[in-house]
Design a binder for these strands. Structure first.
Lengths: 217, 217
DNA sequence: TTATATTTCATACGAACGTATGAATTATAC
DNA sequence: GTATAATTCATACGTTCGTATGAAATATAA
């Protein structure tokens, strides 16, 4: 019986499963992709999922963790850099928003980072009706958001918590939708190709303007 | 054998199935809810799904159609009213955006309309990895968007198609995310309750500002 | 080399799924 | 009232699913 050797030229089984799962889940959704689909595409065995991950839900969790941990770190590091550059002054709104947006866009668009397959999962994340995933996301997001909220309040001292909450949600919605929809082409128009830089600038401009918008009381 | 009478006090079976399906799908997602879940909650029979809808996919389509058709109509009617009020002049950007946003928010928030259960489905719609649904949505959306795009270009004559495309996507993302997240409460803060009116105003203000945002070239 | 740990494999289990069907019941038309 | 259409019912079918297991193979440590 010939078995694929562990850590040979085909790569580590666990890693291979994660890569394949990410691609399939992004394309077809968490529920429509079965673990048999995954092992087939990964040239692995059903028992490997059980061994390495336990359950499908834990595979999903591992998949999200491996993308969210670095994303969180990049966002926080970018915010640190913004605050350091501002010194004793309040950070600029645009810079704070960019620190939030850029790592996600980079992850989604940068072909050299090997993370682009995660983008649709990122886009869908808050829409997924999956309680365990929601809890995982909440854990990741609350750390990041607490830091960003504080910075945003310094950037815009008159902002109420409710206004902040709202505008942050609108920003996240815009970001995520842009990740999901970026393949789309307006009718009768050539495909719109954007770089990371352009994508970030469009989002930051839109969001910063939205943060500054006067609100009827 | 006692069978539930057709069109008696418990209502029409087909309608009952749709109502229950909408609620369950909104809560648990299109894939996690089986038709057995639906018939159980609807006090109906497995064959009734087959009889009235044929397949699960067609049930989903019927469910979306019954919400999207009136939504499309309301959006187009609101836009007609805006354009009529503007007469020979270009419509105001805010008015156009409001014509787009208000019907959806009304549908989602207005308890008297009986449509609030659809809101999470609306929020998730563009994120669903379901090709048939994507096609259905596309059919609905393209009619509406063509009309709104034309009005937006009149409201903002200097806007490029790419800019329009982008900002409309960011607007839709913000709108949908706000529908999904409106139950959420910021940490250490009382729940934020908003009326239809406030929700609409926040969205329109955010989006209009975003439309006006200068873009780096 | 042997012993142990790790990993992969093939398979089983119980449950659940969506689709379909013919019979029975109820509603409608004349 | 009868004939037909519409609706509901109970059930079957074939397939698929996620989880789990013990054996076999491979890797690692001494």
């Amino acid at each position: 019986m010939s078995r694929t050797a562990h850590k040979d030229s085909e790569g580590d089984t666990r890693e291979r499963i994660l890569e394949v799962a990410e691609k399939l889940f992004a394309e077809h959704g968490l529920e429509r992709v079965s673990i048999r689909d995954i092992i087939q595409a990964a040239h692995a065995n059903l028992g490997a999922i059980n061994y390495h991950f336990g359950t499908k839900q834990k595979l999903i969790a591992a998949l999200f963790e491996r993308r969210l941990i670095p994303l969180d770190q990049q966002r926080l590091a970018a915010l640190d850099a913004v605050e350091k550059a501002a010194g004793n002054q309040a950070p600029k709104l645009e810079a704070v928003l960019e620190a939030f947006v850029r790592p996600a866009v980079q992850q989604a668009l940068d072909p050299s980072s090997g993370t682009a397959t995660f983008r649709k999962l990122m886009a869908r994340s808050f829409m997924e009706p999956n309680p365990a995933l929601a809890r995982l996301l909440h854990r990741h997001f609350e750390v990041v958001v607490r830091r960003f909220d504080a910075a945003l309040l310094r950037a815009m001292p008159g902002l109420t918590r409710a206004d902040l909450f709202w505008r942050m949600h609108l920003t996240v919605g815009a970001l995520h939708h842009s990740l999901m929809m970026m393949d789309h082409t307006p009718p009768g128009h050539p495909p719109i190709r954007t770089s990371v830089e352009t994508h970030v600038q469009r989002l930051v401009a839109f969001s910063a303007a939205g943060f500054h918008a006067p609100l009827p009381q």
